[in-house]
Amino acid sequence: MSSPAARRERALLLMGLPALLLLGVLFAWPVLRLLSMSVEDGSLEHLQRAVLDDLYLAVLFDSLKIAGFVTVICLVIAYPLAFWLSRASKIGLALGMFALLLPFWTSVLVRTYAWMVLLGRSGVINRMLRDWGLIESPLPLLHNLGGVLIGMVHVLLPYMVLPIYAALLRIDPDLPRAAEGLGAPRSAIFRRVILPLSLPGVAAGCALVFVLSLGFFITPALLGGGRVIMIAMLIEQQVRELLDWPFAAALSVVLLAVTLAIYAAINRLTKGARLAS
């Protein structure tokens, strides 16, 4: 006979089984295959090239830089937005959430093409500015870093807003009230109470956005016009154009390793903050 607690635990485990199987078959297995492919014939040659070649290192560094920019821009836009949502009226919240989640329900490809229509040389924005006589020749909005950042921020913003919004909602409304009663002006209530207690959400949002940016492919490929190269684009090129599977695998392993390392670092950094809340 087993105890009710043990039986309960087994039942819960059973409920998780389909998801575990799915992950195992569709994720863990291919990743393992990839790992093994990168060290094909027992040689570390591909991995070495991926890590040591200046060209690939430069792309990896660029990817990290772009991911960093995207994360910072998302944070700057998302925090005030999440703060407003957490205090908005029912209607405001519904409208805000709708506007925020609309991109979620639209294909990345569609959104990216939409940005091309807006940002292109003879796109909507450039034509408007020229019609108003504000500019002589079209501004380079597309096929550069700026265009890529705009597109990526647009896609990734919800991943930053939602965790911060959730963290803000979790704060007991009596805490700011208590702070006010103890003599704190609004600025101090925010700085000393609300901001520190929302940091776990900020960390979660940053980790999500950074990690997702690092592996981004379609948006930089289309909006960057070949001038902005991210590591995922290199991997795709290896597979599709050069048919060099082992080297694509090696690059993927590097990307995976960097992603995990950054994720672990963010986790560590925010452990203190999370413990306190």
Binding site: D172, D174, L175, R177, A178, A179, E180, G181, L182, G183, A184, P185, R192, V193, P196, L197, A273, A276, S277
Partner: peptide
């Protein structure tokens, strides 16, 4: 007058201690 200018001490039902 806003609460912060009243100089009133309050113990909340769930204490409302700052957890961090």
């Amino acid at each position: 007058a806003p609460a912060r200018h009243r100089n009133v001490g309050m113990v909340f039902q769930n204490y409302a201690l700052f957890p961090h």
